[in-house]
Amino acid sequence: MADCPEVQVGHVEVSGEDYSKIQFMVDRGQNLWRLSPVRTAQIVGSTYFGLSPNDAYTLVERYIDTDSGLPNAVVRVKHGPCTFLVQLYQPEKRGAKGIWVAESITPI
């Protein structure tokens, strides 16, 4: 996106992330921000993909993906003049105790 070239768009993945290890840590009370799709989009997006922690993050929807059966969430991010949708999913546990992982960032 021309106005916000610092933001990585398309499929996103944090290299070397071990979802079972992250879930294990959350189950023991660490990195509890991973239980919120909005906070996960904010922290992971600003740490790895060019978003800012001060951007406006809003949960758009949660749904079950019909192909994978996994819970998904969409978070809208207002980043300067640009708006993005961050797609997240729960790879380990479903529901309130499952971690969220960013899968893609799409400009709108």
Score class of each variant (00 low, 15 high):
Gln23Pro: 08
Ile105Tyr: 02
Arg76His: 07
Gly95Thr: 13
Asp27Lys: 03
Tyr63Phe: 11
Lys21Tyr: 11
Val77Met: 07
Val101His: 08
Ile22Phe: 04
Glu61Gln: 14
Gly16Cys: 14
Leu59Gln: 06
Gln87Phe: 11
Gln87Lys: 10
Gly98Phe: 05
Val86His: 04
Cys82Met: 08
Ala73Cys: 14
Glu61Ser: 15
Met1Pro: 03
Asn54Trp: 10
Ser20Asp: 07
Asp65Thr: 08
Lys78Thr: 07
Ser15Gly: 06
Ile99Asp: 04
Gly10Asp: 06
Met1Lys: 02
Thr58Ile: 13
Tyr57Ile: 03
Pro71Glu: 15
Ala2Pro: 02
Trp33Gly: 09
Arg62Tyr: 00
Val77Thr: 06
His11Ser: 07
Val86Pro: 01
Asp55Arg: 05
Thr66Arg: 14
Tyr57Arg: 04
Tyr89Phe: 15
Leu51Trp: 02
Phe49Lys: 00
Ser20Ala: 04
Tyr48Leu: 00
Gly16Tyr: 15
Ile64Asp: 05
Asp18Met: 04
Val12Met: 12
Val86Phe: 07
Trp100Leu: 09
Ile22Arg: 10
Arg62Ser: 11
His11Val: 06
Leu70Pro: 00
Gly45His: 03
Ile22Pro: 00
Arg39Leu: 11
Ala96Thr: 14
Leu70Glu: 12
Asp18Ile: 06
Arg34Ala: 05
Phe84Thr: 08
Val75Asn: 08
Ser68Met: 04
Gln8Ile: 02
Glu17Ala: 15
Asn31Met: 13
Tyr48Lys: 01
Arg76Gln: 15
Ile22Ser: 11
Gln30Val: 10
Thr40Cys: 05
Val12Ala: 03
Gly80Lys: 12
Leu51Glu: 02
Tyr19Ile: 07
Asp27Met: 05
Ile105Asn: 07
His11Cys: 00
Ala73Gln: 06
Tyr63Gln: 06
His79Leu: 10
Pro91Ile: 08
Ser104Tyr: 02
Glu17Arg: 15
Arg28Met: 09
Lys93Ala: 11
Cys82Phe: 02
Ser104Lys: 12
Pro37Leu: 03
Glu17Met: 14
Pro107Gln: 13
Val26Gln: 09
Asp65Trp: 12
Glu61Met: 09
Val12Phe: 08
Gly69Thr: 06
Ala41Ser: 13
Ile108Glu: 10
Val74Thr: 15
Glu13Phe: 11
Asp65Val: 11
Lys97Val: 14
Val74Lys: 15
Asp55Phe: 01
Tyr19Val: 13
Gly69Gln: 00
Ala2Thr: 09
Val38Pro: 02
Thr47Asp: 07
Thr58Pro: 03
Val38Glu: 13
Glu17His: 08
Thr83Trp: 03
Arg94Gly: 12
Arg62Pro: 01
Val75Lys: 05
Ser52Met: 02
Ala96His: 09
Glu13Trp: 13
Gly80Met: 03
Asp3Lys: 07
His79Gly: 08
Val60Met: 12
Tyr19Ser: 05
Thr47Cys: 03
